[in-house]
């Protein structure tokens, strides 16, 4: 494997470059996935049948907590990648661990939110609106869940092998993924919750 030392570690081999480029394409596909979900959401938003509307079930407090948790986690993983570029493995692992803990907390609040919705009669089968709401939020939530396991695997590998071109590459790609989930959440926050509460 040829190493290019003029590049950061995560870009230093040919395969690393391919991985990052390929992942950007994958994120493009993910954008289409969520765009489809949002389009469907806007189509079905007011088709509530006999169930509740968004304004009736949305509450600002848990949503705001989720937003703060996820946005902070995105900032922290940025710090993690910065530490990685400086070669500070311990700091990087700590930042990644904090990221995942914040993600876990986010997921906890979201699960609470889902249980609450079902409890007040806005379950998956209630209406087209509740189905697309829970599917859109759920798809994002599943992405976060997957990210928790993925991030954990990466922390273990960095711990075991240190910062190699391979682990740095994986960590960088994971950070792209995590930032992407944050971006999706901003759209969920603005166009599902805030718009729904207006």
């Amino acid at each position: 494997m040829k190493l290019d030392h003029s590049q950061p570690l995560e870009y230093s081999t040919g395969q690393n470059n391919l991985n990052i480029f390929g992942f950007w394409i994958f994120l493009g596909a993910e954008i289409m996935l969520f765009a489809t979900l949002f389009t469907s959401y806007f189509t079905l938003e007011h088709r509530t049948g006999s169930g509740p509307t968004g304004a009736e079930i949305f509450e600002i407090t848990p949503v705001l907590i989720e937003t703060i948790l996820l946005l902070t986690s995105s900032f922290v993983i940025g710090l993690g990648i910065h530490a990685m570029r400086l070669g500070k493995q311990k700091a990087m692992i700590s930042f990644f661990a904090i990221t995942l803990l914040l993600g876990l907390a986010f997921l906890g609040v979201e699960i609470y939110e889902f249980v609450h919705y079902v409890h007040i009669g806005a379950g998956l089968q209630t209406s087209a609106f509740t189905a697309i709401l829970l599917t859109t939020l759920g798809t994002h939530g599943l992405h976060v869940t997957f990210g928790l396991f993925w991030g954990l695997a990466i922390i273990l590998q960095v711990k075991k092998c240190g910062l190699t071109p391979e682990t740095a590459n994986k960590s960088f790609i994971f950070s792209l993924y995590w930032h992407f989930l944050d971006v999706v959440w901003i759209f969920i926050f603005s166009f599902i919750y805030l718009k729904g509460m207006m």
């Binding site: 088709r47 089968q125 087209a128 189905a131």
Partner: peptide, 22 residues
């Protein structure tokens, strides 16, 4: 396809004729 699967297996109302489905 996910929505279609959910309609068929989990009785959601994405594409049905009731409860707001389209």
């Amino acid at each position: 396809l996910t929505m279609g699967t959910m309609d068929r297996l989990f009785a959601t109302n994405f594409f049905t004729s009731t409860n707001g489905g389209m």
